[in-house]
Every structure is written in C-alpha cells, then in structure tokens.
Amino acid sequence: MIICGLDIGGTKVEAAFFEVVKETQDSDHWQEIQVGGEILFLRNRGSRRIPTERSRGYQIVIENISNLIKDLSKELTIGLDEIKGIGIGLPGSVDPKKKAMSNGNTRIFLDKNLENDLQILLKLPIPVEVSNDANCFALAEVLAGAGITYAKEAGKPVKKQNGLGLILGTGLGGGCVINGQLITGASGSAFEVGHMSIELDGGLPCHCGLEGCAEQYLSGTAIEAAYSSRMYSQIAERPDARKIFEMAEQQEPMAQAIIKQYKKRLAKYLGNLTNILDPDYFVLGGGVSLQSVVYEDLEEELRRHTYSPVARPKVYCHQLGDSAGVLGAALLALI
C-alpha cells in the first residue's frame, strides 16, 4: 500500500510517499508502526520539498502542490492510481467536517476544500484527510516513534496509550492521541494548548488576540524576547534561543536566569496538562526540545504540580526528527 503525506507550512511544502506492509523480512529498512492494535511496517520511498510561495495566492500554491505529487510519482515510478490516500498537515486549526483550515497564520488556506481541489487537479478520486500540523507530529510520534519506545519500556501497546505531543519552536502547538486515536474535538481545534492562558492578570499579548497565552512564555521565540527585553541596551543584536541556551551553559547570568524561569514554567505547564489528561508520556519537538538541559529534573518537577500522587508521565525528546510532520500527515490516511 502506498500513502502520501503533505506537510504544508508557511515557507515550504514537503511531500513524501510511504509504502506500508503487514510483514517484512528486512526490519533494518522498515519502521514499525502500530495502527488500531495492528503492527505494520513502513518505509519512506522518497520525498521532495518546494517553497510554499503563499504570496502568489491559493490557486498557484495548490497547483504547485499537485505538480509536486505528480513529479514525485514519476521520479519514484509510482503511479498516481497506486496511492491509496493522501494526508495533509496544515499550520492551523482544521474543521473535520469541511476538511478546511478554519484558523491560522497562512491565511490563503482558510476555508479551502483541499480534498476537492487536489482530486480535480490530479484527476483521481484519491481520499484526502486534513489535520493540524502539530496533530500530525503527535500522531507520528505516538504511532511510530516515542509510542513504540514506551510500549517496549512499559509493556503497554500503542492502542492503550495516552500520548501528548508538544512542539516548542517559533510557536507552541500540540496534539493529543488517546488509545491510538487522534483527538481533534467538535470543531477541529482540540489541544490548541499554545493558546491556553497561563497568566491570571492579563499577561503578554498574543498574535491570536488573547493575552497570557502559553506560546508567549514557552516557545523559542519567547526565550529570545525575554532575554532581549532585559538586555536590549547591552546587546548589538538579538540572540536566538539556541545561543541563549549556550550562554546559560557558559554561566552568563541573565541567560541562566531566563532558562531557569523557562524550566519552572514548563514543568508547571506540563503538570497542569497532566491533571487534565493524565498522559503516559509527553513527546517534545521543535528547536527548544533539542536542548538537553530542558529534560534535567523535568519529570520530577512536573510531578510537583500534579494532583494524583501516582501520575508519573515520561517526557521524551522527539524520535523521528524532521520527518515527523510529513509522516504524521501520511498516517492520517491509515487511521
């Protein structure tokens, strides 16, 4: 079986074709996944990226995406009629009934019927599923990454796991997978945890129009803003989050204070999410997740903010790397 994943962002679009089988004798080249209690094996047959070029408008972008699929199909000698389903990850909330983006910064996709438009351009009635990109990240990690690791460590199969994925990058996004099923909510906006307010009295303004959103305190951008606002008169240019972590490691006092505060906020935030959903584990993605200091004492600290004394969620760094988004998109075609 061939499935196609599309990871559509504000700056780039990635397409990948995956082959899925029930059995294999060559496990070194296949990745184990668990879908609906069934163990399957998957391998990436090939991928390609193009710039989104959203400034050119929706019609040009969707035509470019269609051509991307066609070109990759020819390159891999896989017929379009062999594709059993296409999954799409979009940078915003997706209405599950309309399969259209209802909110997000890449506004050219708002209220667009990608399923219908792609079927017309590809001239095939290929089933198309659409979801938020952070949902795709969580789905991939639970079904094929951290979830497989947890199953081996705890003896609990993916179909019985409660896994939460968080992307700590330019913004803060999340996805929730319970018993192997992606939770999208009534309107497709479930687990928009970047826009939960974590400040009682107002807080920092967010681009969404709210105040005190978690994204304004726990994203990589938030780390940069916190440092720059305190050191603006003493620095020639604003350092990025990775540089601030490096400075903290080198004992630079303000960087140390910023990272210490960040870790306290993150632990409390994960504790609050644990009180709501009682996950088996969290899996973190995005640039901040690559910093090893983030994980030091994190599991112990988050437990200080949980109600249940037996809630002990693990915290994993993402295990699928940059492929998680496009793989999760493709997996939408399987669940």
Rank of each mutant, 00 (worst) to 15 (best):
R230I: 14
K123T: 11
D95Q: 10
L327F: 02
D28I: 11
G10P: 01
E23H: 15
V293M: 14
G194A: 08
S73V: 06
N113A: 13
H195F: 10
R48N: 11
L139M: 04
E211S: 13
R45F: 07
K99P: 07
I8L: 04
N67E: 15
F191Y: 12
A311E: 08
V94C: 06
G328W: 01
I8H: 00
N275K: 01
G285W: 04
V130K: 03
Y295C: 07
S229I: 09
I167A: 05
K123R: 14
E301V: 07
I33R: 04
K97V: 15
F41M: 07
L72H: 02
K260N: 08
H305L: 04
I88K: 01
P239L: 02
A190Q: 06
G89N: 02
N272D: 12
P51K: 03
K260P: 02
A241N: 08
Q25H: 14
C206G: 07
Q291K: 06
V94F: 08
R56M: 10
E299S: 11
N64D: 14
R45T: 07
N113K: 13
I167T: 13
A154T: 06
K264H: 10
V130Y: 00
E224A: 11
I78Q: 06
L68P: 00
E53R: 14
R312V: 06
S102Q: 11
K263A: 07
T24Y: 04
G79N: 15
G285R: 03
I335K: 12
R45C: 13
K84E: 15
N135C: 05
H318A: 13
T52V: 08
L164M: 15
L72T: 05
G209S: 12
D278N: 15
R304N: 13
H195W: 08
P205K: 10
D28F: 13
G203L: 08
I148P: 07
K12R: 13
V94N: 07
I244N: 00
L139K: 01
I178E: 06
S47C: 10
C4Q: 02
V293W: 11
I3V: 14
I83K: 01
G285V: 04
A333T: 06
V94W: 03
G220S: 04
V20G: 07
Q59T: 12
E75W: 09
E296Y: 13
I235T: 07
F41Y: 15
T11G: 04
L327E: 03
L332G: 00
A324C: 01
